[in-house]
Design a protein around this nucleic acid. Structure first.
Lengths: 345, 345
DNA sequence: ATGAAAGCGCTAACAA
DNA sequence: TTGTTAGCGCTTTCAT
């Protein structure tokens, strides 16, 4: 079969322990044998068997990243940061995509017990107390990104403040009829961004109008329900509802994710209206597409969040029992065409 | 520590062999013991240790996917198909991103010998004869996507024909001064697409003009050189050269990837010109962004190619020594605004 | 049908 | 400094 540590040991005339020490850069080695063994390793093109190493070391050098439906550009950009950091830290990255919510728990359970990875990154997925406790009890490294649990490490943006700033931007432009589109309220960010919207209106002493609040439907098809309603189709339909069910529709809408905003823009155009003249729009995330379509939005440093998540996970793998950390990034308003620079009516 | 097969065996009052048989659905088992063991497994929340299984079975249930710089939307869409198919086949997906070309060989070598995965997907990366031979000799499953090697399985689109059709589309619109932008010529697709362009001109009896051929510079910075010049910056600069170095610049350009086309469009705009009025553009790939910016392009069924690659890899893992397969998809012309529906000058 | 035992290829503790 | 050996947790003969 394949060349093993025994082959190397035999050919080099040493014990397998010595070969192992060479592989692992053990300090206590005579330079002479070290060189000798290294030579044989080269000759035989020996490479340690990863699985055998993992089993013996109880360490896999691999981390898992669980994402909901990784079609989303939001995740792609985050994955860039994650991938890069994994690479520099010498970790392999296993990607799990959870299309059906039911699978989420299954993934978590497997990850936890199967011992295939040293740690888990959990993107934009809510974790129940029960699940969180399992990780804590097992002392298994996990860090949440764009999600939160009091007992676990997490990295996110200030969603409430971001939503506030986005809405406020619209208000500052003179809009008084400002609507909001957000994802399913069982998603923390969707919820919190809605709160930010409300606070902004409040701050300007504008009466809240329920008709101007459009939440992604949970009754749509699989596509529309995917990703807590943070998808194009949900955005489209949410905007349609805003437009059709109001005799006096909003002149501006804060959409709580860029991807929904793209759908919303399509809806506006399909109704023969214009962005920003008829409806001004501000999104959230600043995915790459946003720049292309001129979407004003709140920028999240996605790649940075991703790489921070990995390095934090790395720390936790190295030394367990760190105090739980909750890192918050502040989103930044990026003004483009979609919000308009003045109010038109 | 964790609950092992021994714990289950002891509690169930059977041998570990029996537990193993239960786990693996062995046929020769009395229904009675099977039930008994399964009950204990549930009680103890036992889950087989993935690494130990891999080691014993000589099978990891994991495949690797090596991509060049996975920032690209092209890869993202392909990865969607790959991820989905892996999921249905029960495989885990390890993602390697090769930012520096030198790393490519290292990855291949490691993958091959480390035995961490059962097979490899190789996206848009050329493989040398030497490397290919290694895989063949080791009888290690590999399939290339958007790349080709005579001795290995591969999945790609008809690049030459696609480029021909794209260029021909421009020609049909009446353009006579048609340029081309392509990636580094050491990349097979870049090369072949250039050939398609030439054939189209030939077919219309149009004299080839070297000034109208703009190949991504290999002297740029890291970003511009990344991904064989199939990136935005390279496209931008290539278009700039076309515009600035010709006293009589082309009125239409076939850009051999959408991502370059986006850069090219930016360049056109930065020169105060318009697409398609001044310069008509057709891209290649049909990444999601293309629809948003109204880019005419040749559609590659990326997700489909990805999922086919995985299922083929799966076949090869199951039964080795299959005859090498080379699947070709035909790209399809998608007409949007960027090509213009008539010539303006 | 089932238990015992020999690996799978490596690491790490223990001797020497 | 180095060799030996006992695991790591499982699969898979080989008996029974």
């Amino acid at each position: 079969m394949n060349v093993t540590i025994y082959d190397v040991a035999k050919k080099a005339g040493v014990g397998i322990g010595t070969v192992s020490r060479v592989i692992n850069n053990s300090p206590h080695l005579s330079i002479k044998t070290k060189l000798k063994v290294e030579k044989v390793i080269k000759e035989l093109k020996y490479q340690p068997h990863a699985m055998a190493q993992s089993l013996a070391r109880k360490k896999t050098n691999t981390v898992a990243c669980i994402v909901p439906d990784f079609t989303g550009y939001f995740f792609v950009e985050m994955l860039c940061g994650i991938q890069r950091e994994c690479s520099t830290l010498g970790y392999d990255l296993i990607l799990y995509s959870v299309d059906e919510i039911e699978k989420k728990e299954m993934f978590l359970k497997r990850t936890l017990r199967e011992k295939k990875v040293d740690g888990v990154l959990f993107l934009s997925l809510d974790i129940s107390d029960k699940e969180a406790d399992r990780f804590i009890q097992a002392d298994f490294p996990i860090v949440l990104v764009d999600s939160f649990h009091p007992k676990l490490d997490s990295i996110m943006v200030e969603n409430e403040e971001g939503a506030f700033l986005a809405t406020d931007h619209l208000l500052q432009l003179g809009h008084r009829k400002v609507g909001v589109i957000t994802g399913h309220l069982d998603s923390v960010p969707a919820n919190v961004r809605l709160e930010g919207y409300k606070r902004a209106l409040n701050h300007c002493k504008i009466q809240l109008n329920d008709q101007y609040i459009s939440i992604s439907s949970m009754n749509g098809d699989t596509e529309e329900r995917s990703n807590h309603g943070f998808n194009k189709k949900a955005g489209y339909n949410a905007m349609m509802r805003l437009l059709d069910k109001n005799s006096d529709p909003p002149t501006a809408v804060f959409v709580s994710s860029d991807i929904q905003a793209l759908g919303a823009i399509n809806a506006v155009m399909d109704r023969g209206l214009k962005v920003p003249e008829d409806i001004a729009i501000v999104g959230f995330d600043d995915i790459e597409l946003a720049a292309w379509v001129g979407l004003s939005t709140m920028r999240q440093p996605m790649a940075e969040m991703g790489s921070l998540a990995v390095s934090r996970l790395f720390e936790k793998i190295q030394q367990h029992h760190l105090p739980t950390m909750n890192k918050l990034f502040t989103p930044k308003l990026i003004v483009r065409e979609s919000s308009g620079d003045r109010i038109s009516n």
